[in-house]
């Protein structure tokens, strides 16, 4: 079965979603990701969706869920690279991804996570 690869970068996990996901694949990612967070004791998750041309309410909910689950597992989630057309559509759809942090690109998202980690470690 096809899977979306999860990369480990230090204390963070990076997921780049490049395919138009069907729902099962999205559910699978949710499961894999929570497993990996625990396995590697990750402190942050970056989800890069800059290649996604469509985010509907199902995928939106999946992203919110991942962020909420990750938070329970003590990892912060940042979603990066939402395209303008996708952002406009999400707003129109009524989906604001409440509780999910966003950044323009992977670099910014990474900096955000590092800052947070540094602040916690004081």
């Amino acid at each position: 079965m096809e899977k979306i690869p999860i990369l480990k970068m230090g204390r963070f996990l990076l997921v780049t979603i490049q395919v138009d996901m069907h729902d099962q694949l999205a559910m699978q990612l949710q499961e894999d990701l929570t497993d990996r967070i625990v396995a590697v004791r990750a402190r942050g998750v970056l989800i890069d969706i800059s290649s996604l041309e469509v985010v509907d309410s199902f995928i939106g909910r999946m992203i919110s869920n991942i962020a909420a689950m990750a938070r329970v597992l003590d990892a912060e989630t940042v979603v990066v690279g939402i395209q303008p057309a996708v952002a406009i559509t999400l707003v129109e759809l009524g989906l604001s991804l409440e509780g999910v942090r966003t950044a323009l690109n992977v670099d910014r998202g990474m900096a955000m996570l590092q800052q947070q980690l540094a602040a916690e470690q004081g």
Partner: peptide, 12 residues
């Protein structure tokens, strides 16, 4: 308001 919300989704 929608513009503000969309920009926020993009990280700005």
């Amino acid at each position: 308001l929608k513009t503000v919300a969309a920009a926020r989704l993009m990280g700005a």
